[in-house]
Write a protein that binds this DNA or RNA. Structure first.
Length: 885
RNA sequence: GGACCCGUAGCUCAGUUGGUUAGAGCGUUUCCUUGACAUGGAAAAGGUCACAAGUUCGAGUCUUGUCGGGUCCACCA
């Protein structure tokens, strides 16, 4: 058998296996009626994306499940791809353009698109290649892009269908406007953050003084919008202002006459109880404007500068205008006061500029009809969230859903399939409604004109992402793959994406496929640094997964990320040692076995190829432990408890197999049954660990997996053999391990070297224990270095021995003149005291009639047994003290 | 304003439906290079389970409140 290096050199194997898996098409899945299907779609990263820890976590989780299912024999497809990420990508290319001192308007739409596609061709695969490095077993040849030809067809189809159903409309409303990106955003794309601002109290003079009042005071956080005020509102029930309703005010700085109106919306408690109404710059004011037939005065350019309707402030940036307006009001004594005021301000999720509520004509999706079925499938349990609490977040959003603004004033994206005829553009009343069509219309049915202009806007990126689970399989065509792989099984994502993507995919799936897009949604945490801050490039606290792969290996990255994953993950570089060390441990355990097992082995079936009844206790024990672990690992994976699965694996492989079984077996490798068991457990373990650490296991499989085997990635998951789980064996072995541990403790206590041989005397009243000790004395000898031993029923009086007690097994280790009798006595007396404390508690509980009567009988019985054992133990310890003299 | 999560060893976290003397990894201390591995082995120290009240025979676990930390939602002029 080939020699392994002393350490696992991940550098030597990772690329080799990536290439092998790829070449042999191991990750490809295709419609196969003979097998059950298992499919997952990747959350498509932005084409502009660079792999960060969040991606690494997200994709490792998916990969564990996908590899596990593939090994279990499912026909597996993990759909890969990227998202065109409209605003983000356009921003990147526009920044490049800016270096040439040009804007997109200088070069025009077509030229910009050319550059965008060129950028995509050059850099678009970056993240895909990075994902491959972590071992993600996606069906890579299928890799889709949300602006692929076929995918775009699906997007247009969806737009047209929804429009036909009356679920898409166009209209003038207040939307979130990013003055920097110069586009509309959806409500989800405006991130609200608490902001320490001011509440400005401003005097608006009455046209005619009334009841001694010359002015009224309004409070606002955005004084610049006052230039577009067309009314001031009070609550109709507010006694203070009843007489003012219907009066006129003179808008300061603009000298425009505006009315005082009454509206229920106004909260008399807030501010002064009088609200300035700016219908073109605030969603509430917009509603009031509609209710009261006010005019809509837009005072801002799309780039956030004040426009011609802003009078003397025209041309100023909105925040500059704010300063100037306040200054002017102060000068004219119309600024009554300024209060500090914390309120939340929306920011563009792409460039973090403060968004402006802005009046403009946009396209919207009517959401209520789509939300209702999507809500139902979750309530009925057809889709489950893990952890379950996210159900509530989802439900809450769905129940309060608002219409979705889907048009964007950028150029990178799916152009809206709406066409305007020349007559309509010229103002012809009947031709105002656009024609919805994939292709340019031939003739306007209203006026007969043949000149058309396509809508300039493109669709929100998420308007294509929400089709991902079926558009990637060829929808609207009824492809075999679509039929076979839809619906998918699981979706893995972070909580921020629930509204953007998860919720909308569910709506789209139900609307267009008449079925849920997936049945289980796993929400994982956010990766943070060791101080709990979100990892970000700008903070400079990000740990680059690729750097970790270079330094510690991909397996280490994967294993360490998952085992640390709780709600959020707090990551520092040292944490990746966990995975590196474990990979190395697996490697070296294999090395030990390979050095001792002859070449040419087959895969060992621990049930058929080994007769368990012939095996010694440690072998039966490790087999039982393996199948216990396997069962628990399976349950953990199925329950999306991946970190638990890894803990189970590590406990078994390191804590049981390496620390005990291999230690015991080291000197017994001449025994062919030991060879078989050690190799068999190793083979099965390597399979069990593969979904978590694909590289080291695949490499080892070539050495331990026998001849002519398929690669591990396409092999079978270990077969569960619960009949080989044996609780009695596990208990017996545990007792012997405890003896060893207590014995080592004694040695350590008395400064006896671990490898120094000792004598031992055992005492136990239980015949079974006597047998157990005698049969396994060889094992104890090798682990405790027992020289001679005897088994007695009673200890004779001794002056020179340390004593250990494990359950009902008691043992003496003669120490000769090494022992300090007083010290040993002291130690035991202390132990007795400790035990007595527990005894007191236990007997108090058992004397409590309420406990005896009300607690379940098995619990009471357990405690009674415990009491008995403890009593004997104390008695024996006291005996020992007496014997010490 | 509403909803949610977290608080267990110096650090990061486990702790199933309430039921032994609350666990692990890292870190710390002591010992050990004997051919699988020092990316290793052995042993040890370290906890009033944030606090308070309640339910219960029994609470880290359930309820309520308090304090501390975090997240999300909302038409917060």
């Amino acid at each position: 058998m080939s020699e392994l290096s002393k350490q696992f050199k991940f550098q030597d194997v990772e690329d080799k296996w990536l290439e092998y898996w790829q070449k042999n098409n191991v990750f490809h899945g295709a419609a196969n009626p003979q097998k059950k299907s298992f499919s997952v779609v990747i959350p498509p990263p932005n084409v502009t994306g660079i792999l960060h820890m969040g991606h690494a976590l997200n994709n490792t989780l998916q990969d564990i499940l996908v590899r596990y299912k593939r090994m279990q024999g499912f026909e597996t497809c993990w759909m890969a791809g990227t998202d065109h990420a409209g605003i983000a990508t356009q921003n990147v290319v526009e920044r490049e353009l800016a270096k040439e001192k040009k804007t997109r308007h200088d070069i025009g739409r077509e030229e910009l698109l050319k550059r965008l596609w060129a950028w995509k061709d050059q850099y678009g695969d970056t993240i895909i290649n990075q994902l491959k490095k972590i071992g993600a077993s996606c069906d890579w040849p299928r890799t889709r892009f949300t602006m692929d030809q076929e995918y775009s067809q699906a997007v247009q189809e969806v737009f047209i269908r929804l429009h036909q159903k009356g679920l898409i409309y166009r209209g003038e409303y207040i939307i979130n406007w990013c003055p920097r990106c110069q586009t509309a955003l959806s409500d989800e794309e405006a991130e609200h953050q608490e902001h320490q601002g001011n509440l400005y109290h401003i005097r608006y003079p009455l046209q005619k003084p009334l009841n001694g009042r010359e002015w009224i005071v309004v409070a606002t956080t955005r004084p610049e919008t006052m230039l577009g005020d067309t009314a001031v509102a009070v609550n109709p029930t507010d006694e203070r202002y009843k007489d003012l309703i219907g009066q006129k005010l003179i808008l300061p700085l603009m000298n425009r006459e505006i009315p005082i109106i009454a509206d229920d919306f106004v909260d008399p408690q807030f501010g002064t109880g009088m609200v300035k109404v700016t219908p073109a710059h605030d969603p509430n004011d917009f509603q009031m404007g509609r209710r009261h037939g006010l005019s809509f005065v837009n005072v801002m350019h799309p780039d956030g500068r004040m426009n011609d309707l802003a009078g003397e402030f025209s041309g100023m940036d909105r925040f500059e205008a704010r300063e100037n307006i306040i200054e002017r009001l102060r000068e004219s004594q119309q600024l009554e006061k300024v209060e500090a005021h914390v309120h939340s301000v929306g920011h563009c999720y792409r460039c973090h500029t403060v968004v402006e509520p802005y009046l403009s004509k946009q396209w919207f999706v009517r959401m209520k009809p789509l939300a209702e079925p999507a809500l139902r499938v979750v309530q009925e349990g057809k889709i489950k969230f893990y952890p379950e609490r996210w159900t509530k977040v989802y439900t809450n959003w769905m129940e309060n859903i608002r219409d979705w603004c889907i048009s964007r004033q950028i150029w990178w994206g799916h152009r809206i399939p709406a066409w305007y005829c020349a007559e309509g553009d010229a103002g012809r009343e009947k031709c105002q409604e656009p024609i919805i069509s994939k292709d340019r219309p031939v003739k306007c049915l209203q006026c007969g004109c043949t000149t058309f202009r396509q809508d300039d806007d493109v669709l929100d990126t998420w308007f294509s992402s929400w089709l991902w689970p079926f558009a990637t399989f060829g929808w609207p065509e009824k492809t075999k793959d679509l039929e076979y792989f839809y619906p998918t099984k699981s979706l893995f994502t972070a909580s921020e994406i629930i509204f953007f993507w998860v919720a909308r995919m569910i709506m789209a799936g139900l609307e267009f496929m008449d079925d849920v897009p997936f049945s289980e949604v796993y929400i994982h945490g956010t990766v943070r640094d060791s101080k709990g801050r979100k990892m970000s490039k700008s903070l400079g606290n990000a740990i680059d997964p690729l750097e970790i792969i270079n330094e510690y290996g991909a397996d280490a990255l994967r294993f360490s990320l998952i085992i640390n994953s709780g709600q959020d993950l707090f990551i520092s570089k040292e944490k990746f040692e966990i995975g590196r060390n474990f990979a190395n441990k697996i490697w070296n355990a294999s090395r030990l076995i390979l050095l001792n097992v002859p070449e040419g082995n087959q895969i060992i079936d621990l049930k058929k190829d080994v007769d368990v009844r012939q095996l010694d206790l440690p072998s039966r024990w490790i087999i039982s432990r393996f199948f216990t672990t396997l069962k628990n690992v399976e349950q953990a994976i199925e329950g999306y408890r991946f970190s638990e699965a890894e803990t189970l694996i590590q406990d078994f492989f390191w804590g049981n197999f390496c620390d005990w079984y291999l230690e015991i077996s080291k000197n017994k490798f001449t025994d062919s049954s030991v060879q078989k068991v050690a190799l068999g457990i190793l083979q099965q373990s390597v399979g069990m660990i593969h979904p978590f650490m694909p590289f080291v296991t695949e490499e080892l499989w070539q050495h331990v997996g026998g001849k002519d085997q398929r690669c591990l990635a396409s092999s079978s998951w270990p077969k569960s053999e619960t009949s080989l789980i044996n609780a009695v064996v596990e208990q017996d072995m545990q007792a012997l391990m405890d003896v060893v541990a207590v014995g080592r403790n004694i040695k350590m206590n008395w400064n006896i070297k671990l490898q120094q041989e000792i004598e031992c005397q055992f005492a136990t009243e239980d015949e079974r224990h006597v047998k157990l000790l005698e049969e396994n004395m060889n094992m104890l000898k090798s682990l405790l270095r027992i020289n001679t031993f005897s088994i007695a029923n009673y200890f004779t009086k001794n002056q020179d021995s340390a004593v250990g007690v494990v359950g009902r097994i008691k043992f003496l280790i003669p120490l000769g003149n090494l022992i300090d009798v007083q010290k040993e006595k002291q130690r035991i007396l202390q132990d007795i005291q400790e035990q007595k404390k527990h005894l007191t508690g236990l007997s108090a509980r058992l004397e409590n009639q309420d406990f005896v009567k009300k607690a379940p009988p098995d619990i009471v019985e357990k405690d009674q047994v415990r009491l008995k054992t403890l009593t004997i133990k104390i008695k024996e310890l006291e005996e020992v003290v007496q014997n010490l003299g």
